[in-house]
């Protein structure tokens, strides 16, 4: 299937579309360059595995390595807690995203605005519309998605990928990051 078509065929946005993360180095560079990244995790992560391990473990490793605070939606919190990982906040996707459009919001810790928001695991159409909101109304925030499907409204997205390719990329992103 085409790598840069919306996963949901009809959800075609407009002229501005996401650039592709075709290899781990791209994502790593974006994460390393970001001053204040944040990760927003939806309940869809539960069903995925990365090379035999739950995706959630990969995300926890990423968070710890790159010191990225994790915001979880309601249904995902327990999964993180059960792994001894305390999310930075429990907030719905629309709440955290709405705050990201406020240039005066100083983040969960009250220190500084975020400049990179990584999304993963929300229902496709919900993430699509939320990323659209950020594309238009959060000019200071770059967005990146870690799902295995293309999200045109993000700044950076994986292409539509096989699970195998996507997992290899994601694993590579985590492994390549400097501790």
């Amino acid at each position: 299937m085409p790598m840069t078509d919306s996963w949901q065929t009809a959800e075609i946005p407009g002229p501005k579309k996401a650039s592709l993360i075709i290899k781990p180095d791209i994502a790593d560079a974006l994460i390393s360059r970001a001053k204040r990244p944040i990760m927003i995790v939806g309940h869809g992560i539960i069903e995925y595995e990365v090379e035999g391990k739950p995706l959630i473990d990969c995300l926890i490793a990423l968070s710890r390595k790159a010191k990225i605070p994790v915001v979880v939606s309601a249904s995902t919190n327990k999964e993180f807690l059960s792994r001894g990982f305390e999310p930075a906040a429990i907030m719905s996707a629309v709440e955290i995203s709405s705050r990201l459009t406020d240039p005066e919001w100083k983040g969960l810790d009250g220190k500084e605005s975020y400049d990179l928001a990584i999304f993963v695991g929300l229902p496709y159409s919900m993430q699509w519309t939320i990323l659209s909101g950020l594309k238009h109304f959060a000019p200071g925030v770059k967005t990146m998605t870690f799902d295995c499907v293309y999200h045109p409204n993000a700044s950076w997205s994986f292409p539509n990928s096989t699970i195998k390719d996507w997992a290899a990329n994601l694993k590579g992103i985590v492994e390549n990051l400097e501790d």
Partner: peptide, 11 residues
């Protein structure tokens, strides 16, 4: 309750 817009189409 300020609107948080999420355009369904950019056009």
């Amino acid at each position: 309750y300020k609107p948080f817009y999420m355009p369904f189409c950019d056009l």
